[in-house]
Amino acid sequence: MMSALKTIRLDLPASTEDLEKLELGTVLYVNGRLFTAREGAYKRAIEEGVGMPASPEALGRANFHCSPAASRNADGSYRVGAVSATASFRFARWLEGWFELSGCNIIIGKGGMAPETYRRLFVPAKAVYLTTVGYGTGALLGRGIRRVAAVYWREELGLAQAVWALDVADFGPLLVESDLRGESLFARENAKIASGLERVYAGTRPATLSRYGESDDKTKELIG
């Protein structure tokens, strides 16, 4: 069964007015510049106090939680194959102050972040979270990459953790996971599923030997 989801195209960098129009579950294709940054870049920029590798004009204002499947040609140019996002929740610990430092108002990743992170950090920064789909539409997203504008910190961090500034066109599909109010599509879906879990768990029993840290509250988020 398919039903048509609302689909829009968004130019980067996006203004707050652009972001105000985004509703949870809207399908997005983006055009413009974005940059990759994940744990290696966060550690270097924030913990080691190095700051950003370039200005928001050079990097764009959308932070993609990704490292591309790419190789470096002998002439120093790059060949980008597939790109897929990596799970974002692990990066929450570095987001304090990140929007201010980087100038970002969009994070693109996998699986979203905890609702509390949206409320505390995204909403004041007027930032939204867009999730890739699948996961693993690596070939479709790879097609959307038109040019590698620059690669920063390649020698310090390696290809996978380096900061890639990428020019993209029709880059998607992405889904709006969190809007400017900090509402979350995943949280909404989780709540719907939680209501039927008791019935599914009938005919099961907890393990004889439990484990530290275990909780029997199936509505509990494990991320955050």
């Binding site: 039903s3 989801l5 990596t86 996961y135 690596g138 070939a139 097609r143």
Partner: peptide, 28 residues
Amino acid sequence: ALSAFVIKAMLDNYEAAKADRRAMCGDT
């Protein structure tokens, strides 16, 4: 509807991977 959309996107993705001889997922 959302899950069906995702599955359809993945089926498109396999076609794109084969046509471009590009990895289907960026993760490896």
